[in-house]
Every structure is written in C-alpha cells, then in structure tokens.
Write a protein that binds this DNA or RNA. Structure first.
Lengths: 188, 188
DNA sequence: CACTATATATATCGTATTGATACTATTGGA
DNA sequence: TCCAATAGTATCAATACGATATATATAGTG
C-alpha cells in the first residue's frame, strides 16, 4: 500500500496532522501492519492536496509552530473507496530473525539457540503490547486487527517454545560450548 | 536487513548468480520473510565485490549472455558472521488486508465480508504452498523457517474462521445483503 | 539553576529500494 | 507460426526510508 493511500485511509478515520499520522503508524493499531516516515508522509500529503483529495487548514498556535490539520474531501473519500475496491496485495513480511536462523546454520550454528531465546522474549513483549492496546476505546475494526496480531504472535511464540530444542546439539562443528546436555529430542 | 547482507547470507549457502538470488528471494524458503529486486541485488553484488567479500567468475556460455557466478570469500564469511552477531531488527509486517479492514469500516463496511472471505482462501493457498516446500531436501534451518511460516499462517486462518461473523450485520448502512443470520456471539 | 530528555510540529536531504523495463536468446505450447 | 514463458544480464525514474535540522515547551535530575 503506497503512502498516499495510507494517508487517505487514516484521514478517513478523522482529521489529522502529519505528525499525528506518523504517530499512528509508529504506535497504535497501525504499527502492526504498516510503517511510514516523515520523508514519505509529507510529500504524500502534498500530492494529495494537489489532487484535491485532502484540504489543509493551518491552525495558528501561539508559542508553537502552526498546526496543519488535513481533512479528507469528498473526492478523496471516493478515491479511497475506489482503491479499496480492488483486492489488497499480499502481505509483506520481513524478518531478520528468520534470515539469521538460515544463515547462522552455515556460518555460526552455535548462535541459533540465543537467537531463539531472545526471540521468545520479543514475542512475549509484543503480545503484551498488543493486548495493552485493547484497553482504549476501539472500533470493531481495530479490535479485529489487534486480535489478529495477537493470534499470530502467540502462534509464533508457541512454535518457538515447542521447537527450540530441535536445533540444540545439532552439528556441533568445532564450537564445543554448545552441547551442554544434549536433549533426547525425537531421533531424526 | 539490507540487501548486501542478504546476498552475503544467500551466498553462504552456495554460489549463485544474481538471477538465482532473485529467484530464491521471490520463491523458496526465503519468499516468506524477504524481498529484493534486481535494482537492489546487482548494485549490492557490485559493492560486495569492491569490498572483497565476494568474487565473481564469468562463465561464458554459447548462445546465452555470460553467467556471472558469485562466491563468498573468507573475508565475506567473516563479515557475515559479524553481522549475525548483533541482534536482528524486529520484523516488519505490512498488510494491505488489515489496512483495508480498518479503512473499509469508515468508507465501505459492506466490503469487509468479501475481504475476509478472500483472505481465508489466500491463507489456505499459502499454507499449501509452504507445505509443498517441505518436500524437497531441506536443511534443518529451512525446515524450521517454513514450519514457522505454516504455524503463523494457520493461526491467522483459524482466527479469521472464528471471527469472520463478528463483522456481519454490524452497521448495515444501505447494503442490506450482509445480515444473513446474525450470530449470537458473546454480547459485549 | 542548568542540563538533559522527551514531546509537539514541520520539513528536507542523501541514499536505498522498488517496479518497470530493455536487451537478447531459447524453449514449449496453441 | 506466433506468443508466452524461461534464462540471464542490467539500468532508470519514482518512491520510500532514515537521519537530521529547526523551534519551543515541559518534565525530571543533579
């Protein structure tokens, strides 16, 4: 999803400034499935203005720089509806962790255990954070999205807990320090 | 993970051409957690050459453009090991589907059911595809990665099957066709 | 009181990445 | 025979990212 559409969508939920959009994407329900930086948000808002999809009223504040509040126009609402009509592109998941698992195997197998151990804690934290979001007043949509996130995170966590032993003691080539108590995992 | 490290990692599993690297990232076990285009792979290989991390031997083929096979050097292997030493960055998940759920709510709520229905089929296909990968000869690492993928995909699928009714019949503004049998989900 | 960090708020800049495409040649199917 | 797909290289414009600059105010700390 390009940033223009993302901004359009966020503005469909209510007026916002560029700063607020950035915050929503970095925290809140959006953080689980999107990301955008100022360097893409501000140009996107500029283009949306030029296309007539959003308007901007500058709210002069004393002792603060002007706040530029963007609002969706009727034209913008139609453009968003149109975008939502076509099927969403498949998800893009990027995981340095999974890459590291694959690469460590050939280059530093003794590191895999730590990697998984750390990851388990990260999943636990992520789950706590997501469940914390469910406290505020949320729409059915954002509850759905957050719970979707919780479900997948929990599945990942359980997978790691079940399978972390599958690696231990395997091909201990040279390291030596990594075969503390070889577990009797199902031979194979 | 930047593309240079990704290339280094893939080459640690065996020699490859730029074309082959692209294929591995687009299909195979890598497709689940990484992505890269020619426009980033070729420049990355060029830089890795300049840094002495990879070598390249051109294999002249008749009736085809030269095949440039890249190999990891010992220096490159050390650089990769070094990169793997630091903790992997958190995953980045981008989902147009989840965004669409949120945005549809305010702009086209009658579309949500279709969105979920389609998504269920996509998850089923993805699971089949991932499980298909498990047939070939795989290292423990790639089995782990693929099964991690299967686990999360299945969790997502189950979540959607369980919760797809949570949306039906809610704020049926104008559509009318979407309130077939309102389920008695736990009132709340 | 000064110092530091964090929050509010806008915006730009260099670089990395994407997505599309060009070029050339072979294979396989309609 | 013609079209699409596969194999292989590579580049380019548009976009996105990540870091940073610019200001001001507040909150905490030594």
């Amino acid at each position: 999803m390009d940033i223009k559409t993302l901004c359009l969508g966020i503005l469909s939920l209510g007026d916002a400034t560029g700063y607020e959009i950035k915050k929503m994407v970095a925290e809140g329900s959006f953080s689980f499935f999107s990301e955008a930086s100022y360097g893409s948000i501000y140009p996107a808002l500029g283009k949306l203005m030029a296309e007539g999809f959003v308007t901007c009223r500058a709210m002069a504040q004393e002792k603060r720089p002007d706040k530029k509040v963007y609002s969706l126009t009727e034209l913008g609402r139609e453009a968003l509806t149109q975008s939502l009509r076509k099927n969403p592109d498949p998800d893009k998941n990027r995981s340095e962790f999974l890459a590291a698992i694959l690469f460590c195997e050939s280059v530093a197998p003794e590191r895999v255990d730590d990697l998984i151990e750390d990851r388990i804690h990260e999943h636990e934290q992520k789950i706590t954070a997501l469940e914390g979001l469910l406290a505020g007043d949320m729409t059915p949509g954002s509850i759905f999205v957050v719970e979707y996130g919780v479900a997948t995170q929990k599945a990942a966590l359980e997978f790691l807990l079940k399978n972390q032993n599958k690696f231990s003691g395997q091909s201990p080539k040279g390291a030596g320090a990594n075969l503390r108590e070889v577990p009797t995992t199902a031979a194979e």
